[in-house]
Every structure is written in structure tokens, then in C-alpha cells.
Design a protein around this nucleic acid. Structure first.
Length: 973
RNA sequence: GCCGGUGUGGCGAAAUGGCAGACGCACAGGACUUAAAAUCCUGGGACCGUAAAACGUCGUGUGAGUUCGAGUCUCACCACCGGCACCA
């Protein structure tokens, strides 16, 4: 930055940061907490001592997505969201809310662990160093965080409660009839009361052994205990499952679906493969419907909601059973379809290569081909599968199934275009009405049977014969239409004795309903809702994460089983290691600590750790009561900050009703968390809500995604491009206030926008103009001379040399000055309510551009302007406020708690206004008229305009449109 | 392919269906200065004109439509950004 310094921000900013820090100025008080009488919050609200929730002002909880403290520090893109929330926090504080605005650290994570693997240095050390850097940088920006609530997910005092919540999940199940989570003990008790009840567990045993329904007659105590245990384990929200998971060799860990992008790890971009492993899972699928439906109750952007909807992937359809033909075993294959109306067109069946029935049904002739194909398919990474997607592959199993609606025998194939992880892992193929089935059928010469009329084709036909064999299709018709070729015209009737379902002539929606009802009646299928969402893979083979509060034991029957540690054993701390790599046998690093793993009673600790997402699932709750060591959050405290009652405004006349909703009032962060963090956190919150630990079903009422800040070259900021601007650079050159202002002035919060150093200078100049509006230039010159000779430590005091601008006087404001001020108050207030920071700033620029021309500047007007400026540029505003107050013998209480001004609409009323006159919709003149001029006067004035006359002379005025106070439009022939 | 978002000067952008381009950047001219920086003032959509203006015409991705009047509403299309993607 070249040129003279606009104003002494280098002294002002540290000065006020120190003042705020010493005063604990932004400390937020919980109900029942001791409020010091001299605290600015106490002074503003005339409170002190211990204050009950009902006596505290209404709350406003404004939250940032807490950062992962990386080694690189902050660049200018980071503070965008933090600045927006800080401005809002300061604004709400000025309005009189009890504002909760905290910050913390999402500190578990891979980089610190990888550094530990390389160097042997404990990841805690790296993490603490990085936190220190991040904290210093964030604090240099003057954000009004309540640092007394700071937390890190890596603190044992914090992850103790992460583990505690895991135990809640472990000890709960989802009850479909109550539609909520309940303690698992209820299920266990129910089982004890009814020892002879046929449990789900018994049914599954029944299928594989006797193939008969039977009550197992005698049970030993051991056996009952085992049934109980297994039944409970099968229903827990946190459960163990052996299933194919994403394994990343390079990272030495498994990954969640959400962490795998394009067949590569989201972190590092390493290849991943499917591998069956024993893993901890969280039953998020039980909440799929709630997670979907409750999106309608919260104020998030459409695109974000849509991303979550897509991820949950709800689809309605039917499950249909296809009996396997020519076998003595009563085997049937279930498929999921959204188009049961096309069942008559199902000409073959496809299973995913991993489907567990494949082995059982494959004919001996096809065994080799099937085995080869399975090897081929499992060898493909997901990336390869996606790349090769265009070319369909598959093999015939040699087996056939019976189409339940027409008795037709159809071949069963396996192909990797059918995914094991979706639906039932098997499909009925309807090539006439599905793109993929069509391609497959074409390639392997399978029959194509058209059973839905394309409405466009139907419209062209004089008479439609619903049983006629159609002209061969050129492409599949996948839309909705009219059903055809079901009985009595059904295709391939092989079993004339059976009762048929006739859906001919029915539109798709009705056909679906009718055939589904028919299937249900015949026990051949049922209506189903299917979700794309999978259960959350919750264990990682890492060191730097929360250990599970779980031990493994061996039962008397030799079966290994897990058991939760008691709450008293929390926190479970990770052991100190010499080497942070996984073991040679592929066990997680924790397995190296033999003393830690093996407990005296012979049980063995779980050696997996939780994923990084665990800590961020509930941090917003811990902020409420960060020091509580007897609960994850106190009940009353939670109710005050998250509940509905305390968010009702005292001043109901003010502004919109955006604070009357519960939960976090405003949450700001990047889109990168659209499906991971935000889905997981909602899930945990809903479980905690069901179990009665929190007051609301949703955690984040309003959520805004800030847009990315690009580099000056319009590219995303990255090290490799060399376009990264660390925050320290503008802070040193133009100060934090200018940086904050520019972050917001660039454009709308949600938009992607490029950084511009020149643009920063522009807002910096604006702050310089504000400064010169307030101070005496002569005294500033003296200050500058004194500063060059003063010792560094004493320079701060020199700010006192700067005197107020003599034009600032205790005089009554003129109507014009009041109008300028109140126009600014109105615009800034409304724009802040709508999160339109950029236009709020331009309104303040307009004010300053005007005020700087005033010969005398009334103190009262400038004071109110500083209150408006304070949220945006708090340091300069406080400094000027202090000077102004001292000079005018006004109280010098913190500007941060000064009440927000109200605009007076009466002051904005104009007597005379300029309105446009149009002829045939084209602007021809602007006329000055009295604001209340009657319509006739407006018409006359318009017609008399010299500029308008040439356009209406000699023509007939057919119509005159007058919009009072807006415009006149003359319509001529 | 599907879903969501965005298209306005040289640039970032602003405009409850009613004067398009507020505010800022960059640029140009002027004042101050020995000079520069900083600051202050003035001017900037394009075209046609003109010494300079007035006037005039065109102009918000493209094409249609609704309306007295469209950047704004409707329909169709194009481009870019983001997400999902063999989801049965």
C-alpha cells in the first residue's frame, strides 16, 4: 500500500481490542450467572447479580462454522463469514439482545496425524500450535466473540461428552410406532417379559435352519441372554456391522460414503476400494424421513435443502417378490421398483454381482462365467465403474424367475449397473421403459415389451388397441403414460388359471396404485419407500480421534460381543504412542498400545476411533455451557439459548419476526458442509431431542452459505496458484476495520466474488473520510509529528492529541441533516435485517459524502451515525465515539452497547418530489410536483411540460396513467 | 442426463413492475504542491451529432409474450458456476 496513512488504525485497533478484552465486553451471560454490575451489558440492561432467564433480554444465537486449524493460517477468504456474523452480533447487541457469539476449533483431523506419523511428534502439539496461530489471527480482526466459551473438539473435557452422546446412541433404538428414539432397555425389558415371543432374531434363524416356523422350546439362561443381547444389538442406533466399506490404502482407514468423491478419498484424492470389514455404524437411515420432512420447517436456501433432499434420495415405489423358477427351495428375490405399472414389461431380472443369492441360483454351466464376472466387477474401482458406465456388461446366471403378474419365466442376469447398496440390490428389467435396461437388452438381445403408451403417440391414434403388438420402439419411453397389454390382453400368459390384474387404459399413477394393491393382496409385494441414504459408517482406523467408550468380551459360548463402558469411565483418553502408524497387520494405531487395549478383567478395548464429524455434530450445544462438568449442557441453559420462549423480542415493534424461531438463530458457513456436517448434526440433534436432552427438533433455524472469495485472478485461492492473500497482509496495510468493510462491500454474502486490492483501498479511503469528518486536521498533523519521535510503547497515548473537528457542535440538526441521517438509519437497519451488508455500507458512504459538506455538524447526528458504523468498523467507531463523548460531556459507556437508533419516517417525508413523465412508455421529462398533488394537477403538469409537448402536439391523448408519487404516462394515438 | 443458482458499463455491483447503472474501483480533466503522494472538485453505458452542449436512437445473455410501462413477471433457448449422477 502506497501513500499516506489514512488514519492511525495501527494504534486504534490494538487499543480497543485491549479495552474489550480487559472488560470482557462480549461475555454473554447465562441464566443464573453472576453479572458484574460494571459490565457494559449490565449497565445497558440495568441488571446485576444473578439473573433468571425470564429477566434476561431475549437471546440471539449467532454461530460460525468453527474452523479446522490448519498450519497455513487464515487467508482473506476465511473471515468473510466471520465478519458477517460479527456485524450481525454487534447489531443485535445494539438492539438489546443477549447475543451468544462463540468460536472454537474442530481440531481432530488427518493433517496433524500424518505429521505425527512422519515425525513422531504427538498430534496434540501440532494441533495446539495451529490453534494458537488461528486464534491470534482471528483475534486481530476484532470479532466480538465470547472467548470464555472457547472449545476444541480435542479437549478431553469436550470429547468426554462426545463419547457420552455416543453412549446415548448406543443405548437407544428407533421405535417406528412412536416415530422416535427410545432407550434400548425398553426393548430388552419387553423381551424379558415375553420370553416365548418370536423375535426378529428367531425368524432369521428359522429361515436358514429348519425352514419351518417353530418356537424354540427350551432356553438356557445363557441362550436367553444371548438372544437378548443380539436382539438389542440389532436395534441400537450405534451398531456393529460387517459389510463392504470404502477402504483407502494410502490413508490407512475406511471412509464414509460422504467422504468418497468420484471413487477417490475426499481428503488427498487417493483411490478407495470396497472391502468387507467389521465397523461401527450409526442408524441415520431411521431418521431419513424426519431429516427430509423437517427441512420444510427451517429457513435454509433452496439449493442447500435440495442437496440434502437429493442425498436422502427418497423414492416411492413397490417391493415385488419374484420366485426363482425350477428349484425345490422356496427362494424368491425381492426387487424395488418405482414403476410397478410396468411389471408386465419386465422381461428379465438383474442382480448386482455382490447379491448374496447369486451363488445359490447360478447353474453349473454358468458357474465359471459368473465367478469370472464377479471378479471382474469387484476389481473395478468405483471410478472405473463410472467411467465405463456407457458400456453395459453382465452375464446370465442360468437361473430363471417367475414374473408374478403373468407367470412368465424370465432369465436372471448379474450386472454391475445394478448397485448392491441401493434398494434390494436387484431389479426387474423393463427395457421398453428404462434407458439402462434398454441398453442392456439391446446389447444382450433380450426381449423388449412395450406396456406404456406414450401420450403423444396415443393422441395421434384414432383408436388405441391396448393389446396390440406395437411397432418396435426406437428408444425407450421413460415418461408417464397409459398402461396397456395387461390381461385380458396380457403378454405371455402361461398360467391361464391364475387371477390377473387388469390395468389397461389406466394412467400411470392409477396403474401403479392398482397393481400395488393387487400385489399386496396376493402377498407378492408391497408399497415401499426407499432411500438413497445409507447408515453412517462411524469408525476410522486412526489415532487422532475420539476413542470409543466400548470394550469387547468373550461370552461363555465363545462368542465375542461388545459392551459399553459406564459413564464414570469417561473420558476414554487415547494412549500415548511412539509410532502413530497402523500396525503391520492392518489394525488401527491404538492397537499398538497393548497396556491400554487389554484390561485387567480380560476384556479388550475397541481400537477404532470416531470420525472427525463426531465432534462437530454437537459443538453448538457445548458453547451454551462450555465449562459444565456435570452435563454436556445444563438443561435450563439449553432451554434459554435454544428454546422458543427466550427468543421472543421484548420490543415487538421492531423489524421482522426472524428471531421468534428456536435453535441457533443464524448459522453461517460454506457450502462444503451441505451434506456432511449439516446432515450428521441434524441427526444427532434429533436423537437428543427424542431422548429429551434438547428443546428443539432442529438445531439451526436459519442457515446462510457465504460465497467463496476468489483470488485477484478470478481463480480459487490456492497455494499452487500463488494467489493466496493471508489476512495479516491487509490487516497490516489498511487495518482490520477496512478489511472487515471490504469483505462485506465486495458483493452479496452468498455470491462468489474475486478479491481486489484496489477495492480494499476504496473502503480504506472511506474510513479516512469518516476520520476527517470527525477530527481536526491541525491536531492530527501535530499527532503525526509527535508520533515519529515517541517511543513505541507511548504512541497509544498520543491519540489524545487528536482533537475533534471544530465544525462538530452541539447544535440542533437541520431538517435536511436529519433526513440524511434517517435515510441512512432506515437503509442500514433494513439491509442488516436482510443480510445485505454491501448496500448498508454504500448507504453509510452516501451519508458521509453528504455530511462532509456540512459547515456545522451536529453532535447528535454524528453520534447516531457512529452507532450505525460500529458493527462494521468497530475500532474506529469506538475511538471517535470516545472523542465525541468526552468533548460533549456525554456518558462514555461502550459504543458496542449503545442502543440502535430508530428511524423516524416523518423526517423522510418530502414536500416536493420529482416524478418522470412518459409518453407511450418512453421517458420524456421529469417534473417537480407537490407530494400530495391531486391526479388532475399531475396530468396538467405533465401535459404542460415543454419537453413533452412536441410528443403530444397534434395527437389525441387516449389515456393517462397516473401513479401517485411515482409517474405519469400519456398514451397518444 | 437430473437438480439448484447466476447472467446488468472497462471491473465489483445497485435498482417494492414505474427516471437502469446507486455506492465503490479503474480511467480522464482540474485545484493544491517546486514536484510527487495524499486530499478536494468535475466527468465517464453505447451510438449519432457538437467547440461544448440540447435534442435523438439503442441498451440489463438470446428470442417471443403479458402490461400504459419489464433488468424485474410468463414461456422457450444459450452460456457459466455449484451439487448429484447406472439410485431402478
Amino acid at each position: 500500500m502506497s501513500g499516506r496513512r489514512q488514519y492511525p488504525f495501527h494504534l486504534i485497533e490494538p487499543k480497543w481490542q485491549k479495552v474489550w478484552d480487559e472488560q470482557n465486553a462480549f461475555r454473554a451471560f447465562n441464566p443464573g450467572e453472576e453479572i458484574p454490575a460494571n459490565h457494559p451489558f449490565a449497565v445497558r440492561h440495568k441488571l446485576s447479580g444473578k439473573v433468571a432467564a425470564t429477566q434476561l433480554p431475549p437471546k440471539f444465537y449467532i454461530l460460525d462454522m468453527f474452523p479446522y486449524p490448519s498450519g497455513a493460517g487464515l487467508h482473506v477468504g476465511h473471515p468473510e463469514g466471520y465478519t458477517a456474523t460479527d456485524i450481525l452480533a454487534r447489531y443485535k447487541r445494539a438492539q438489546g439482545f443477549n447475543v451468544l457469539h462463540p468460536m472454537g476449533w474442530d481440531a481432530f483431523g488427518l493433517p496433524a496425524e500424518q505429521y505425527a506419523v512422519k515425525t513422531g511428534q504427538h498430534p496434540r502439539k501440532t494441533t495446539e500450535e495451529n490453534i494458537a496461530t488461528f486464534k491470534r489471527q482471528i483475534q486481530s480482526l476484532g470479532f466480538s466473540y465470547d472467548w470464555s466459551r472457547e472449545l476444541a473438539t480435542t479437549d478431553p473435557d469436550y470429547f468426554k461428552w462426545t463419547q457420552w452422546i455416543f453412549l446415548k446412541l448406543y443405548n437407544s433404538y428407533f421405535d417406528p410406532s412412536l416415530n422416535k428414539a427410545m432407550p434400548i432397555s425398553l426393548l430388552e425389558d419387553a423381551l424379558s417379559e415375553e420370553p416365548k415371543r418370536q423375535t426378529e432374531w428367531e425368524k432369521s434363524e428359522f429361515l436358514v435352519s429348519t425352514r419351518k416356523w417353530a418356537v424354540i422350546p427350551e432356553r438356557s439362561a445363557e441362550r436367553i441372554a444371548r438372544i437378548r443381547r443380539n436382539f438389542a444389538n440389532d436395534n441400537r442406533l450405534a451398531y456393529v456391522s460387517e459389510q463392504p466399506v470404502w477402504w483407502c490404502e494410502q490413508l490407512g482407514t475406511v471412509l464414509a460414503n460422504e467422504e468418497v468423491v468420484d471413487g477417490k478419498s475426499e481428503v488427498g484424492g487417493f483411490p478407495v476400494v470396497r472391502k468387507p470389514m467389521r465397523q461401527w455404524m450409526l442408524r441415520i437411515t431411521a431418521y431419513a424421513e424426519k431429516l427430509l420432512q423437517d427441512l420444510d420447517t427451517i429457513d435454509w436456501t433452496d439449493s442447500l435443502k435440495e442437496m440434502q433432499r437429493n442425498w436422502i434420495g427418497r423414492s416411492e415405489g413397490a417391493e415385488v417378490n419374484f420366485a426363482v423358477a425350477d428349484t425345490k427351495l422356496p427362494i424368491s428375490i425381492r426387487v424395488f421398483t418405482t414403476r410397478p405399472d410396468t411389471l408386465f414389461g419386465a422381461t428379465y431380472m438383474v442382480l448386482s454381482p455382490e447379491h448374496n443369492i447369486v451363488e445359490m441360483i447360478t447353474s453349473s454351466q454358468q458357474k465359471k462365467a459368473v465367478e469370472d464376472y464377479k471378479t471382474f466387477a469387484s476389481g473395478k474401482s468405483d471410478l472405473e465403474r463410472a467411467e465405463l458406465a456407457k458400456e453395459k456388461t453382465g452375464v446370465f446366471t442360468g437361473a430363471f424367475a417367475i414374473n408374478p403378474v403373468n407367470g412368465e419365466k424370465i432369465p436372471i442376469w448379474i450386472a454391475d449397473y445394478v448397485l448392491a447398496s441401493y434398494g434390494t440390490g436387484a431389479i426387474m428389467a423393463v427395457p421398453a421403459h428404462d434407458e439402462r435396461d434398454w441398453e442392456f437388452a439391446k446389447k444382450f438381445n433380450l426381449p423388449i415389451v412395450e406396456v406404456v403408451w406414450d401420450p403423444e403417440v396415443l393422441a395421434k391414434l384414432k383408436t388405441a388397441t391396448y393389446g396390440a403388438i406395437p411397432i418396435p420402439l426406437e428408444s425407450p419411453f421413460c415418461g408417464e403414460g397409459v398402461a396397456r397389454r395387461s390381461p385380458p390382453h396380457g403378454w405371455g400368459l402361461k398360467d391361464p388359471s391364475g387371477e390377473r390384474c387388469d390395468i389397461n387404459r389406466l394412467p400411470t399413477a392409477e396403474a401403479k396404485k392398482k397393481i400395488t394393491a393387487w400385489l399386496e393382496e396376493k402377498s407378492l409385494g408391497k408399497k415401499t419407500i426407499n432411500y438413497k441414504l445409507r447408515d453412517w459408517l462411524f469408525s476410522r482406523q486412526r489415532y487422532w480421534g475420539e476413542p470409543f467408550p466400548i470394550v469387547w468380551k468373550i461370552g461363555p459360548d465363545g462368542e465375542s460381543y461388545h459392551e459399553a463402558l459406564p459413564e464414570s469411565a469417561l473420558p476414554v483418553l487415547p494412549p500415548t504412542l511412539e509410532d502413530y502408524k497402523p500396525t503391520a497387520t492392518g489394525e488401527p494405531p491404538l492397537a499398538r498400545a497393548k497396556d491400554w487395549v487389554n484390561l485387567p478383567d480380560g476384556s479388550v478395548r475397541e481400537t477404532n476411533t470416531m470420525p472427525q464429524w463426531a465432534g462437530s455434530c454437537w459443538y453448538y450445544l457445548r458453547y451454551l455451557d462450555a465449562k459444565n462438568n456435570s452435563a454436556f449442557v445444563g438443561k435450563d441453559v439449553e432451554n434459554y439459548w435454544m428454546g422458543v420462549a427466550s427468543s421472543l423480542r421484548l420490543d415487538k415493534s421492531a423489524h421482522s419476526a426472524d428471531a421468534t424461531k428456536p435453535g441457533v438463530d443464524l448459522y453461517v458457513g460454506g457450502t462444503e458442509h451441505a451434506v456432511l456436517h449439516l446432515l450428521y448434526a441434524r441427526f444427532w440433534h434429533k436423537v437428543l431431542f427424542d431422548l429429551g436432552y434438547v428443546s428443539t427438533p432442529e438445531p439451526f433455524f436459519k442457515l446462510v452459505n457465504q460465497g467463496m472469495v476468489l483470488g485477484e485472478d478470478n481463480q480459487k485461492m490456492s497455494k499452487s496458484r500463488g494467489n493466496v492473500i493471508p489476512v495479516d497482509v491487509p490487516v497490516a496495510e489498511v487495518g482490520t476495520d477496512a478489511l472487515r468493510l471490504y469483505e462485506m462491500f465486495m458483493g452479496p454474502l452468498e455470491m462468489v466474488k474475486p478479491w481486489s486490492t484496489k477495492g480494499v483501498e476504496g473502503v480504506y479511503r472511506f474510513l479516512g473520510r469518516v476520520w476527517r469528518l470527525f477530527v481536526d486536521e491541525k491536531s492530527e498533523t501535530e499527532f503525526e509529528q509527535a508520533e515519529t519521535t515517541a517511543e513505541t510503547q507511548r504512541r497509544g497515548e498520543l491519540l489524545n492529541l487528536i482533537k475533534l473537528n471544530p465544525a462538530i457542535q452541539n447544535v440542533v440538526a437541520t431538517p435536511a441533516q436529519l433526513k440524511t441521517l434517517h435515510a441512512c438509519i432506515k437503509k442500514v437497519t433494513e439491509d442488516l435485517d436482510g443480510l445485505r451488508f454491501n448496500t448498508a455500507i454504500s448507504a453509510m458512504m452516501v451519508f458521509v459524502n453528504d455530511a462532509i459538506t456540512w459547515e456545522t455538524k451536529p453532535v447528535s447526528v454524528l453520534r447516531e451515525f457512529l452507532i450505525l458504523l460500529q458493527p462494521f468498523a468497530p475500532h474506529i467507531a469506538e475511538e471517535l465515539w470516545q472523542k465525541l463523548s468526552a468533548n460533549s460531556q456525554l456518558p462514555t459507556a461502550n459504543l458496542a452497547y449503545a442502543p440502535w437508533p430508530k428511524f423516524d419516517a416523518a423526517l423522510l417525508v418530502e414536500n416536493e418530489i420529482e416524478i418522470p413523465v412518459q409518453v407511450n412508455g418512453k421517458l420524456r421529462d421529469v417534473i417537480k410536483v407537490s407530494v400530495n398533488a391531486p391526479q388532475a394537477d399531475l396530468e396538467a403538469a405533465a401535459k404542460n411540460s415543454e419537453k413533452v409537448k412536441p410528443f403530444i402536439e397534434g395527437k389525441t391523448i387516449k389515456k393517462i396513467i397516473v401513479v401517485p408519487k411515482k409517474m405519469v404516462n400519456l398514451i397518444v394515438a
